[in-house]
């Protein structure tokens, strides 16, 4: 049978990505179909896909700069078409780096690289940092966050060395703010924005954790929602509502298989699809 992505989410498998399998599982957990598409397969397969996810990892070994080689890959021409036509596209971690390097995000000047994901700036450490963070949702309507309430706090882990959203073009920054494109910001458990480490774990400008395009169909986020899609994935000592829920599920493996906080991003896509039907 010929391969088809009709009504399914395609997860792009660039060489060196390493979160593709769990991303497939997380999308399937909300009842949507999902499959991998290798970077060198026929891009036309994506035409009737429900959405596309560029997963986390180290595509092309982060050669030159994270995400930059994938951004030049020919499959991105197809993603560009789809993005412009309003199809949902999500970049997670390395995928976010790819979407930023492709100029899809912030997309104020289409396909111009106006934003960067620079090396983390952290208190008394450098390089790679793996930790749970809290995200404050706000801003414009974005397909991938549409099921999250305004000002709602979502705990999701990060794991990266280059995740600091930054730009020195104040016009771009003002535009992003005006358009409400900064839909996810690092915050405390209580939802307070605090620019200092570790609340803002990488020194991101404006505590940016996820930025969408003006139209809200493309989202680049550094945190990994697929690693927070089941309650069992939440650390017991996380604290807050989700930590409490996780701790209370101790001893009940059925409850542990319930949804975790990060599933809401995939759930958002499912609801968007149903709303469109």
């Amino acid at each position: 049978m010929a391969r088809s992505f009709k009504d399914k989410v395609a997860i792009i498998q660039f060489p060196g990505v390493n979160c593709e399998y769990e991303t497939v599982d997380a999308v399937r957990s909300v009842g949507l179909g999902a499959d991998l598409l290798r970077w060198n397969e026929d891009p036309a397969l994506l035409e009737n896909a429900l959405g596309v996810i560029v997963p986390g990892g180290f595509s092309y070994q982060d050669r030159i700069r994270a995400g930059v080689v994938s951004a030049k890959d020919h499959i991105m021409d197809k993603l560009s078409e789809l993005a412009a036509a309003g199809h949902p596209i999500l970049g997670i971690c390395n995928g976010a780096q790819v979407l930023v390097e492709s100029g899809f995000i912030p997309g104020i000047h289409w396909e111009s690289v106006d934003l960067a994901l620079a090396p983390n700036v952290m208190e008394d450490r450098d390089g790679y940092y793996c930790s749970w963070t809290h995200l404050l949702h706000g801003g414009t309507d974005c397909v991938w966050t549409s099921a999250i309430g305004n000002e709602e706090v979502v705990p999701v882990p990060i794991a990266h060395a280059e995740g600091r959203f930054t730009t020195d073009d104040m016009e771009v920054l003002e535009g992003m703010k005006k358009n409400g494109q900064i839909v996810l910001r690092y915050c405390t458990q209580a939802g307070q924005i605090d620019p200092s480490f570790p609340t803002n774990p990488n020194g991101s400008l404006e505590s940016m954790a996820g930025v969408c395009n003006r139209e809200g169909n493309v989202l680049a986020m550094m945190p990994h929602p697929e690693r927070a899609s089941w309650l069992r994935q939440v650390p017991e000592d996380l604290g807050g509502g989700w930590g409490m829920k996780r701790s209370k599920a101790g001893g009940d493996s059925g409850k542990m298989e319930a949804a975790g906080p990060g599933r809401i991003f995939f759930e958002s896509l499912r609801r968007w699809k149903e709303g469109g039907e």
């Binding site: 599982d25 997380a26 940092y129 930790s131 882990p157 690693r227 017991e236």
Partner: peptide
């Protein structure tokens, strides 16, 4: 903890108890 956070302990999504917990 300082050392553990240099490592990706979350990838594959199967972790229930992480290093140091």
């Amino acid at each position: 903890n300082y050392v553990f956070k240099h490592y990706d302990s979350e990838v594959q999504g199967r972790a229930v108890i992480r290093p140091g917990e």
